[in-house]
Amino acid sequence: MTSTTLRGVTIDYDDLGPPAGLPVLLVHGHPFDRTLWAPQARALTGAGHRVVTPDLRGYGRSGVTPGKVLLADFADDLAALLDHLGIERAVVGGVSMGGQIAMEFQLRHPRRVRALVLSDTSAAAETDEGKRFRNRLADRLLAEGMDGYAYEVVDKMLADYNVTAMPDVAARVLEMMCATDPRGAAAALRGRAERPDYREVLAAVEAPVLIAVGADDAYTPVAEAEAIHRLVPHATLAVIEKAGHLPGAEQPERFNAALLEFLAAQV
């Protein structure tokens, strides 16, 4: 674990694997931290890749910016982190909100994207109903904290059958959610409520794209991944069986196999 100050906030991150390996930047979703990617970091570094996993501002051990944090803020933080590490171009991947941050990164810093990995995410702009929901949830988290919300949604973050079948995974996911600072989670929710439509961005992507999705994702179902797949010129779709919204945690061997196969073509 290492920390640095970037754009006015302390960012904690791991930089693992050989410095000369293919750089892979993995971005966690809400409300998690970089340890969500631990199974992928082990597999990728074992294959000779360099893996960078930051805690986004407001999450994990990184500093908190109260109020509102836009996806653009997160994307620019990532660009600053790559600058700090001396990495010009990287494979940029994310899950859920992290996938939307990866899309925002493609929008703002396209020349730095060697390839994209989009897991269990959505490219469309937030709806009016979604905006109201995210802002109400932000208010709730600030008033009540994270625990009640975490226990309510764990069976959507994971496939419901995996909550009982994989108690260690469920416990780790709950631990991350409950440990998140409500101020950071609320700020991200308010910013995410204002996200733009990334479909035009994706339609113009020239880099290779891996689209992964849990077969039983309740938040961003397979149909959403298929829609992105149809949109993106150079895309591969991997449906991860027996997984929900977090296939990298629920079925790491299957997820890693798809990811490693994709990365092998980028070296």
Rank of each mutant, 00 (worst) to 15 (best):
A138V: 04
N162G: 03
M177V: 01
A188H: 04
G148L: 00
L202F: 12
G148T: 05
G145P: 09
L202R: 08
A203V: 04
T220P: 07
R192D: 15
L137C: 09
G184T: 00
E175Y: 02
K131N: 00
V222H: 15
L142N: 14
R114I: 12
A218P: 13
R183A: 15
P167W: 07
E194C: 14
E144D: 01
K156G: 07
R172A: 10
A143R: 04
V205A: 14
K156W: 08
S122N: 12
G191T: 03
D120G: 12
T220Y: 13
T180V: 11
R140A: 02
R140G: 00
R114A: 15
A179K: 03
L202P: 12
D181V: 11
V209G: 03
A159R: 07
R183V: 08
V205C: 09
V209Y: 04
P208W: 09
R134I: 09
L141Q: 02
E194F: 11
M177H: 00
S122E: 11
E224K: 15
V213I: 05
A203G: 14
D181N: 15
Y151D: 07
T121I: 06
R114T: 14
R172V: 00
P167M: 07
A185E: 11
R192H: 13
P196Y: 02
L137Q: 05
A115W: 13
M176I: 08
A123S: 15
A165Y: 08
A188T: 06
N162D: 03
N162I: 04
R136F: 05
G184E: 01
R132W: 06
V117P: 03
P182D: 15
A215G: 15
V173H: 09
P167T: 04
P196W: 07
V163F: 10
T220C: 14
